[in-house]
Design a protein around this nucleic acid. Structure first.
Lengths: 283, 283
DNA sequence: AAGGAAGTTGTAATTTAATTACAACTTATC
DNA sequence: GATAAGTTGTAATTAAATTACAACTTCCTT
């Protein structure tokens, strides 16, 4: 949530002095981000530590961090707010909300994703002897999609959504193999095991998962997507879309790394479908 | 002007070391705003004053002020244009482009989708005796995802990505059954057959496909997503993300139609996963 | 090719800003 | 009215950023 909103919302949980600080900040937010803690303390007529405590109460690391958050919420118009579906929303309302919150999630993901790690992941993938995609539950369909992208590259690709197959496959992996483990939470025990087994067998393990999760600890490389979890419906929605976009990015990076000639190969794969399709008529 | 753009624009007026700083910042802007000058200097492998000079060159008062500007330019969601990946794009470039073009595609889809049809589809789905999701190729993973959403609703759901199974399943369908056929182009012959067979057997057929396509003609209800096809890479990317969002919308509509009590059911499904996961620790 | 000027970069010192520890003071409660 | 919980400020400490200056490049002149 936006820091400014947060201040407004928690105004009654503040102490007297903290409230003074809140008032000054709300009155001149733009000035605040260019002030030192001393200047702000003076404006609010409180001591510096009080300002610091105020910042901490809002879940920031301290005054400089608070200013950063403030600067972001001041930045002109967050285009779309993360809107939640309500009990009595009609079709127009929930359709719009889901589109918007998905777009907002992608925007967040874009800002948080670590380009260096993407680049390293692409590196590793282009050099892979074999690529395996593993996911369970909702992440299984992401793994499937990844397989559908990567098999076109003429690299051996496997994808299992069955823990027994995953396990056997992981045990059989060896140096040069790349195993991609997909899990939004990174807390699925079975998948952590798979990652560990793959690593023990010298495979490179890429995790598409939450940073700092048990799964992340088992991985050689962690691609973390900081997407606000959409718990309203008890189903992974936006988080999984972000994962798919990440797969698209990796696949794109892969093809770019391989150069123009390789691109013609992809065209061939696509053209191979022609026989199974109805001709497109011109209108 | 946005600081990030400014960096990109003035990249050739930078000295060697300043360029190193620019690269690091462009690669991980989000990290940068939470780093100290020392940390950033180390990342860029330059001295601290160099970073400071870099900030000044961009018309900021110093490093902290620069971070403020950076935070702001990261916050206001660059209005995304539909940008295409180029041959010589680096990781930053193609990552940004794919995120942005996906968001643009979703925005387009949102504007084109027909809410009435969504509403009717939700109607049909809530009353279904059995729901089947069929897709081939890239659309198979969308079908999988749909299954993963709808099985939670305690309705019989099947999903096949194998034409023989699809065919057998379609032949066995009867009134009250709903068959959802997913195909971006709507020109896959096999899937058209499936739709026709299902209809002959009195099932309701919902097509998630292009309006006016051969598949659309076989369907009772057509949910069309007019997403600019992303042919650059010869792989379906944005179009498939839009399909997934549509599935999310249908699933959400379904749960809303079923009311609050039903929602608790979903929570139970989610909670059932607890045993298979590592506990989340509080910090 | 040598010398020097302009420009670039890093080291160390200095300054500034933020945070911590602790003591004094309020406020509420019994 | 005493005491405990909570709040606030002062002073000391620590961390971060900036400045001054020296060393090193690079490029131009003679």
């Amino acid at each position: 949530m936006n820091v400014l909103e947060k201040i407004v919302n928690s105004v009654n949980s503040f102490s007297k002095s903290e409230r003074k600080v809140a008032d000054v900040i709300l009155a001149n937010p733009q000035t605040t981000i260019h002030s030192s803690i001393a200047a702000l303390a003076k404006m609010a007529d409180v001591s510096e530590p009080t300002v610091n405590r105020f910042c901490r109460r809002l879940d920031t690391k301290g005054f400089p961090d608070f200013k950063l958050h403030l600067a972001q919420s001041l930045a002109n118009g967050t285009p779309y707010v993360n809107r939640h579906v309500e009990e009595d929303d009609g079709p127009e309302a929930y359709t719009a909300k889901i589109f918007e919150s998905t777009m907002a999630a992608l925007d967040a993901a874009r800002q948080n994703v670590d380009i260096n790690t993407i680049n390293r992941a692409v590196d590793v993938l282009t050099q892979a002897k074999k690529i395996s995609f593993f996911g369970l539950g909702a992440s299984a369909s992401v793994a499937h999609d990844a397989q559908n992208k990567f098999f076109r590259f003429n690299v051996p690709v496997v994808c299992f959504d069955d823990i027994v197959m995953q396990r056997m496959s992981a045990i059989n992996s060896s140096e040069g193999d790349v195993v991609v483990c997909i899990s939004h939470t990174g807390r699925t025990k079975n998948l952590c095991d798979i990652a560990a087994i793959a690593r023990e067998n010298d495979a490179t393990v890429i995790g598409i998962t939450a940073y700092d999760s048990p799964l992340a600890k088992e991985c050689t490389l962690v691609l973390s997507l900081d997407v606000p979890e959409d718990t309203d419906m008890y189903m992974p929605m936006a988080s999984r879309v972000a994962q798919l976009v990440l797969i698209d990015i990796l696949a794109t990076g892969f093809t770019l790394r391989r150069g123009t000639k390789f691109r013609e190969n992809l065209k061939k794969v696509k053209d191979s479908l022609r026989g199974s399709r109805f001709e497109k008529k011109d209108f």
